[in-house]
Amino acid sequence: MKIAEQVTFGGSGLDRAAELRSNIPALAAALQDDRARTVLLWRGKLLIEGETGFDLVRLPMTHPVLRDARDAPILLGREQGAAIFAQDISHWQPEGLEDGQLGGFLDTSEQAHPALAQGQRFRELRAMLTRLSLRDAELAATAKAIFGWHASHGFCARCGAPSQSHNAGWERICAECGAHHFPRTDPVVIMLITHGNRTLLGRSHGWPEGMYSCLAGFVEPGEPIEAAVRREVLEEAGVRVGPVRYLASQPWAFPASLMFGCHGEAISDEITVDPSELDDARWVTREELTDVFAGLRTDILPARKGAIAHFLLRNWLADRLD
């Protein structure tokens, strides 16, 4: 697909400076460089500023708010010759915020730390998917994913002992058995399934009323992408799929997936929904989907802007899958 990398989080050519991760003297020098900057997270949210479009805030390494960061900075890469890091202050408790107030399908609340400049606040990445620049989106997704991995992999998968962060945050090592652990990404197929002039849409349990999207599922061990597409569609909707081709990919840090966008041609059209997998599934014509994207339907809401499903469906409508 010629426009594959135009998908949200499609990449900005960030220099990830991997050679610095294990070079302790060079990493120390990078940290002490006055040009070095860090992005900041709080409970998975990113520090941003701006109103119409959002900018990811890059703080100097000496900023007072970083005194609340308990762990060492994680190296994200290099911008304009200087290192850029990520740090986390999730243990900070905003005044008046009670446990259980955050979360839900889309958390649109914002939090402002008193040590930060006016207008700078923490915002959920899902709530600004298409309102970040390519570079800011890549940095944000990388930071969110790597901190999510550390949060869920604090103990060795081999022996159960606590593990420690190494290599500028890109490795964990168990002091008990010596096992080395590296960040993991879960492969997921997401499918634009077509049958003539129609595409197959489904909705998962707990989604907002009327929201439909492409079917998706995790790739199983030992399974090719194409086979995963056919298996998932058959399991979830009872539809058999013939030819499958890859279109585009999208890092999806919710919490740590890599979405493989594919186009599959259905060879059957009778739908049998597995109620444990989907709430509903239906065939939608091009004309109907055009109305959905135009906001003319009340029974179907379009896939969320910024998600690869929206990208695939929109380009199917525009006949731009090649």
Results as ranks from 00 to 15, higher is better:
11 G>Q: 02
12 S>L: 04
13 G>V: 10
23 N>V: 12
28 A>S: 13
36 A>M: 08
36 A>I: 10
38 T>R: 04
41 L>V: 04
44 G>D: 07
47 L>I: 10
50 G>L: 03
52 T>P: 02
54 F>N: 08
56 L>C: 07
58 R>H: 05
59 L>K: 01
62 T>C: 06
64 P>C: 06
64 P>L: 11
67 R>M: 06
67 R>Y: 00
68 D>C: 12
81 G>A: 03
82 A>R: 08
99 D>Q: 11
102 L>M: 08
108 T>N: 13
111 Q>S: 08
112 A>S: 15
112 A>W: 13
114 P>I: 03
133 S>V: 06
133 S>D: 07
133 S>N: 13
135 R>I: 14
143 A>Y: 11
145 A>R: 10
148 G>N: 05
149 W>Q: 02
152 S>T: 08
156 C>V: 11
160 G>P: 01
160 G>R: 13
162 P>T: 09
162 P>A: 09
164 Q>I: 14
167 N>L: 02
170 W>H: 15
170 W>R: 08
175 A>V: 01
179 A>Y: 05
181 H>S: 07
181 H>A: 07
185 T>C: 08
189 V>G: 02
194 T>P: 01
194 T>H: 09
199 T>P: 11
199 T>A: 12
205 H>W: 14
217 G>T: 15
217 G>M: 10
222 G>L: 14
228 A>D: 09
233 V>A: 13
238 G>V: 09
251 P>V: 00
253 A>T: 08
254 F>W: 13
254 F>P: 04
259 M>R: 09
260 F>L: 14
260 F>D: 10
264 G>W: 00
266 A>C: 14
267 I>M: 02
269 D>C: 14
269 D>G: 13
270 E>P: 01
272 T>N: 13
274 D>E: 15
275 P>W: 02
275 P>Q: 06
275 P>H: 04
277 E>D: 09
278 L>I: 14
282 R>S: 10
284 V>W: 04
284 V>N: 04
287 E>T: 12
289 L>H: 11
289 L>T: 02
296 L>V: 12
299 D>G: 01
304 R>D: 00
312 L>M: 13
312 L>S: 10
315 N>F: 03
316 W>N: 03
318 A>V: 00
319 D>C: 09
